[in-house]
């Protein structure tokens, strides 16, 4: 691996931009492919570049035709938690271990303190404003934890308009039904509702905040990793 290739790879990653390293296995000659350009000794034609960029979009590393290995380096997964509550105190560090960059959104100063969340990025803007700035994408999960429609709903409205791969809401079935009613009044429909996981998490009988965090993280993982067809099989 040439110094220029390694440097560009590390730079792109530090800037949290998607980048692929392509290696011709036969001789180790390489190039860097980003959504916009290409750099390195290895020269790929348009069709090959398109294949690489598809792998980048799908977050899928592997061998491709021509004897190339595509190593996809996508920006880290993100988890946006709305509500700096007790469950967030357990979920934030667990998600960090699982590879997520965690942001906690809560405008209530008493909750979102560095003391309660050491080392976690805290955002004290109103949830709609914060979510709009954070721009959830295909590698972002959004979980609302406040139980307060004033805080949860504005976040949900922005999340539903985004490509967030997972949206989850803490609350009982009754709370969730009321939430969907309100979202319906706000103009959302059945297709949007199916994107929302509520009540939050896998049903493992979780009781304590830490256990609820485990069930939520397990469900987020399931949605991230399980291909749609196997989900259909399981249903």
């Amino acid at each position: 691996m040439q110094p220029a290739i390694l440097k560009r790879l590390l730079d792109e990653r530090a800037e949290k931009r998607p980048v692929a390293l392509v290696t011709r296995i036969a001789d180790g000659v390489q190039c860097i492919v980003t959504p916009g350009d290409m750099l390195g000794e290895l020269v790929l034609n348009d069709a090959e570049q398109a294949t690489i960029r598809r792998h980048l979009a799908d977050d899928r590393s592997g061998m491709v035709e021509g004897g190339y290995f595509v190593h996809v380096h996508n920006p880290p997964l993100r988890l946006v938690l709305v509500g700096a509550v007790h469950i967030a105190q357990a979920l934030a560090p667990m998600a960090a271990i699982a590879g997520y960059q965690v942001v906690i959104v809560d405008p209530r100063q008493a909750f979102a303190t560095d003391e309660r969340f050491p080392g976690v990025s805290l955002d004290d803007r109103w949830p709609d404003e914060a979510l709009e700035a954070l721009k959830p994408n295909r590698r972002t999960a959004v979980v609302t934890l406040t139980h307060d429609p004033k805080l949860d709903d504005p976040a949900l409205i922005v999340a539903l308009k985004s490509d967030a791969f997972y949206i989850g809401c803490l609350g009982s079935r009754k709370t969730h039904a009321k939430r969907l009613e309100r979202l319906g009044e706000a103009g959302f429909g059945e297709a949007d509702f199916t994107r929302i996981h509520g009540p939050l998490g896998l049903n493992i009988g979780a009781v304590t905040p830490a256990e609820i965090a485990i069930s939520a993280l397990a469900q987020i993982t399931e949605v991230l990793r399980r291909a749609p067809e196997s989900e259909a099989k399981a249903a």
Binding site: M1, Q2, P3, L6, T23, I25, G28, F69
Partner: peptide, 10 residues
């Protein structure tokens, strides 16, 4: 089974 590619960092 696993295939591992090993390269030098120049």
């Amino acid at each position: 089974k696993v295939q591992v590619f090993v390269e030098r960092v120049d």
